[in-house]
Simulated assay, not measured.
Amino acid sequence: MLDLLPEQQPETLNLRCPVPLTQHPAAVYLDSLGSERSKATMREGLNIMARMLTGGECDAMTLNWAALRYKHTAALRSALEKKYAPATVNQMLCALRRVLKEALRLDLIDPQDYSKAVDVRSIKQSGKVRGRALTLSEIAALMESCSGKTPIDIRDKALIAILRGGGIRRGEAVNLLKRDFNLSTGALFIREGKGKKDRTVYLPESACVLVSEWLELRGEAPGPLLYPIRKGGEIQRRRMTEDGVLKIVQRRAKLAGVESFSPHDFRRTFCSDLLDAGVDIVTVQKLAGHASPVTTAKYDRRGEETKWRAVQHLEF
């Protein structure tokens, strides 16, 4: 348990009786998240913080979040910083602030107490950026690893085409329905992406060809666009999982001899390549489904060569 004063002990932070989920700030916050993966990640973060605050007596649903004050959140930040990496701490602090924001909206916490409680600084991170962009040769090697004619090869080519060509999140990919893809225009309709926002992205023609090959094998039945496939080639007509996408990407990287990368690196590659091609950042932002161009800029993984080419336009 955190080293708190007597008046801050766990009994003051326990919910004395259950409350409806519509009035529970943590439940309201978690329900606002788009993907099940995001919900699971943030729920675990809230559980960790609740246990730290109460010596293991509470979890996210039994802690009285509205009772938190600055003395709690400041002590919590300090304890988290000693135990977790900066990115993990900042993610949990973000969840904490969002839960307290819901408590304010539900009139469970005084505005002044709220403003003080959320006034905790994020942890400063090193300048090293996360993830990377894939090179054209790496993407070619990945596609070559899927050059066979088995159902798994055909499905994996379509999956890579969608992740690389559409720049979408893996959670968005597994949620795609067959009706969400328009072969004639290359449009992919993304339902309830991050922040539960819908958007439309467009696949290049080369990617559409690969998806169409999968559709010929998949058939016209309604349902998920992408299916899991057993090792023997049996297509399972159900939705893929995000973890399944991760394992496919890891397997293809190993087969292709490509340095390990994550499915999210396809998004970084997507944004970097479009920016390098001269597409304005607002358009890239809309395609990526980012709330702000500032977020899109963080996905830019173009190297020194791009900066060198840029200054060559200057005349003297």
Rank of each mutant, 00 (worst) to 15 (best):
T150A: 14
V209R: 09
A141C: 07
H264A: 04
E220A: 15
Q250I: 09
D198R: 05
Q125E: 15
L159M: 15
A140M: 05
V245H: 06
R179D: 15
T185I: 10
I162T: 10
G193F: 05
I229G: 04
E138Y: 11
R238N: 05
D180C: 09
Q236V: 15
F261W: 09
R237P: 06
E234V: 15
A253K: 01
K157D: 07
P263G: 06
G186R: 03
P151N: 03
D265I: 07
F266C: 00
A158I: 03
G193A: 05
I248Y: 07
R170H: 09
I248R: 03
E259Q: 13
L215C: 03
P224L: 02
R230G: 07
G127M: 09
L159W: 01
N175Y: 08
K197N: 11
E205Y: 06
L176W: 06
K254Y: 07
Q250C: 09
R191E: 09
L142T: 00
A158C: 04
E220L: 13
E205S: 13
P228M: 03
F261M: 08
E242F: 09
I190H: 01
K128Y: 12
A256D: 01
A187S: 13
D265S: 08
E216F: 11
S262E: 07
K247D: 12
L163M: 03
N182H: 11
R218I: 10
L177E: 13
W214I: 04
E144K: 15
A256Y: 02
P204E: 08
G223L: 02
I229W: 03
K178R: 15
G232S: 02
R155W: 02
M240R: 02
E242M: 09
E172A: 04
E220V: 12
R237Y: 13
T185F: 09
L217E: 05
I235K: 05
R237M: 11
H264S: 01
L215V: 08
G233I: 08
T241E: 00
V118N: 00
L136P: 12
C146G: 06
I152D: 05
I229Q: 04
K231W: 12
